[in-house]
């Protein structure tokens, strides 16, 4: 089974590429065939994070149709089992991809045969970026313990959330209903979901049920990166609780990744942090997150397997 993990979050360097790159290395070291895709067109630097200075080919070759298949732009890395599709040399910003270009890319990604595919989605919350979250199995948000970063993460969560709602209410008569509703509820306010569900229930109880289930099926994970000793350890836990209580969605807090000055040193020397400094608190934190990814993947597989069994009965 293929596990697609999208990594996103606030702008201003919360550590999305740092986490993506190091997760790729850890998963590969555990024998998992892993592909990193740098979808942060315009801001691509994931290749540098894993020690590749000049990627030969990149997504721009695919987007400009110079190559047919994504497989042709997969480059091997110095780490066995780890591969990269670079986003470098791209003059396009992801927000400006044409519809056809985007759809071609979106359809090609799930066809790649790797055990784990990690998408570094950069800081965007554009329409196009949200599409990439939608094709992923899991959404991982990276924030720092700073209000600016937290604000961005909440904006991203709301954008994905709203897209899901629109997706459920896609038929014509529901579209009008939703537009009217959104007009009255500017932003996603305190009673947004409770109101939406109760009004929808009056219109179509079955649809209201589907809505609730769809939103609950969102699989959000949260990491607090660059965590310093003086920061509260349970910040991420409180954020996850808020999302559950007020947006009725499941968000698991996957832990803090400690701040370490040597991250800067590692990046400057173009050696992946986890390889240069494996015996640091930060490295231990990263390994724990890798464990969480693998555990989640295992559970998902077991769940799907059990469902298949049920179908045969």
């Amino acid at each position: 089974m293929r596990h697609i993990l999208a990594v996103g979050g606030g702008k201003g360097g919360s550590g999305k590429s740092f986490i993506s790159g190091n997760m790729g290395i850890l998963l590969a070291a555990r024998g998992k065939r892993t592909l990193l895709i740098d979808v942060d067109l315009g801001g691509a630097n994931l290749h540098t994070m894993i020690g590749i200075s000049y990627p030969r080919v990149s997504l721009s070759d695919f987007i400009s149709k110079d190559v047919e298949s994504l497989d042709d732009i997969v480059i091997p890395t110095a780490v066995p089992n780890l591969f990269l599709i670079s986003g470098a040399q791209n003059s396009l910003d992801i927000a400006n991809l044409h519809y056809q270009q985007k759809m071609r890319l979106l359809k090609a990604i799930p066809k790649l045969s790797f055990e784990y595919i990690i998408l570094d989605l950069g800081a965007g919350t554009s329409f196009n970026t949200i599409d990439f979250f939608m094709v992923s199995n899991y959404c991982l948000f990276v924030t720092t313990p700073e209000p600016t970063s937290i604000e961005n993460v909440y904006r991203l969560i709301r954008a994905i959330y709203l897209r899901k709602i629109k997706y459920v209410l896609n038929e014509d008569d529901f579209k009008a209903f939703l537009d009217g509703f959104l007009d009255r509820h500017k932003g996603i306010k305190l009673d947004f979901l409770a109101d939406l569900l109760s009004m929808l229930h009056r219109k179509d109880p079955e649809k209201a049920m589907i809505m609730k289930q769809t939103l609950q099926s969102l699989n959000f994970k949260l990491i607090v990166n660059q965590h310093r000793k003086q920061d509260r350890p349970d910040l991420g836990q409180l954020m996850a609780t808020l999302a559950r209580k007020h947006l009725a969605l499941k968000m698991d807090f996957w832990g803090n990744v400690s701040f370490d000055d040597r991250v800067h040193t590692a990046i400057c020397s173009k050696v992946p942090f986890i390889q240069k400094y494996p015996y640091t608190r930060t490295a231990t934190d990263l390994r724990e997150i890798c464990d969480s990814i693998m555990l989640l993947a295992e559970q998902t597989e077991e769940f799907q397997y059990a469902q298949q069994e049920l179908q045969f009965e």
Binding site: Y154, R155, K189, M239
Partner: peptide, 13 residues
């Protein structure tokens, strides 16, 4: 001053 709910609610809420 809560960091966790920063920007989550507006002032009235």
């Amino acid at each position: 001053e809560s960091l966790a709910s920063y920007s989550f609610f507006d002032e009235d809420e």
